[in-house]
Design a protein around this nucleic acid. Structure first.
Lengths: 186, 186
DNA sequence: CTGAAATAACCAACTCGTTAGTTACATAGG
DNA sequence: CCTATGTAACTAACGAGTTGGTTATTTCAG
């Protein structure tokens, strides 16, 4: 077998992403990641450090890449909500990782996320000053509601998920439409 | 010290709720729960069974409290959203427990929750038939969006939580108002 | 009442499988 | 033969669940 440390790193990252998405940080097992990655456990420690640092690497590598993949347009928040919805549909793993992060890293202050939030809030404020967005809500208020609506279909408890969901396009339509209602002030 | 098994059960339940809310099922430590509850670990196993069963007890307790305390009125969903918001404010552990449950118990089918959902969906349908609620959305669609809006302020990532939130009453107002916008169809 | 037996509440200390993290060694390939 | 890559086997600690008791409270016969 040809030796390729970069390929091994990638296999470990992929296996770790699946493991962390499924079980969270506390519930994940380094041995299981090694097994899935067809790599020796010691290599995980050699390449990534501790389990917590491996999670950080996974989160940075996968999730942060997607933060900027969804274009943020403060003058068209309904479309932004729709794109967010699309992302949650296409990469359910990413959303799970984010949720684990929220729960298990309550003191997290990833600079990239902070910067992304600040940029969004600034863009909203700018759009408001330009008269292109309602001033009925503050930037934080708008971002909060838009985010909640965008992920509404992915917040279902297991029990509510038993009820048959509308089609994907219908769900998307509802998300976009409800954000439109929010920003189209009288 | 007077012996009172019921008081001990309550102390264990309270300590377990705090522990599970903070660390989830996999991350919680039975020893820590015992310490917080000022109770012996063996009593936890005697009264509640395994760690997983203790989580079930805690979760059922919280969920039932929610169902009991938050009256569901399909003809006034904005008010329902407001009451839900109030409960999340009063018992911040509720949403965290629910999220852990979603992540760590993806196959959960708690009868109390299923029944509560069914009842809500039926009431919405009834209100729609009586012409007291918009038929622009199906019952599941309405419940989904209303729930998301009600918990919008409690879904912040650690990074977004760094931004100073509006006053509690303002947040509540936004929740109620945005649900009103949703159900007040043209 | 009384006091001994029965029962309920409680606990310190244990077992034993699991798990994060390490080490000492092996092999590929330039 | 030298370095990067890889590994089996290890350790030390942790953590869920158990055991074999002790202490308090209740019961009930005399």
């Amino acid at each position: 077998m040809a030796r390729d440390s970069e390929a091994t790193r990638v296999r470990i990252l992929d296996a770790a992403e699946a493991e962390f998405a499924a079980y969270g940080i506390a519930g994940s097992r380094v041995d299981r990641i090694a097994e899935t990655a067809l790599a020796n456990k010691a290599l995980i420690y050699k390449y990534f450090g501790t389990k917590d640092e491996l999670f950080d690497a996974v989160f940075a590598h996968r999730v942060l890449a997607f933060v900027d993949e969804v274009e943020f347009d403060a003058t068209d928040l309904p479309a932004y909500a729709g794109r967010s919805f699309d992302l949650y549909e296409r990469f359910p793993t990413t959303l799970r990782l984010t949720t684990w992060y929220q729960l298990e890293r309550p003191d997290g202050k990833l600079p990239a996320i902070v910067a992304s939030n600040d940029a969004k809030l600034a863009k909203i404020e700018e759009a408001q000053r330009a008269g292109k967005l309602t001033t009925a809500y503050s930037p934080l208020e708008l971002l909060t509601e838009v985010r909640a609506l965008a992920m509404s279909w992915h917040l279902h408890t297991p029990e509510l998920a038993l009820v048959r969901r509308p089609s994907r396009s219908r769900c998307r339509e509802i998300v976009v439409e409800s954000v439109r209602r929010l920003v189209d002030q009288d």
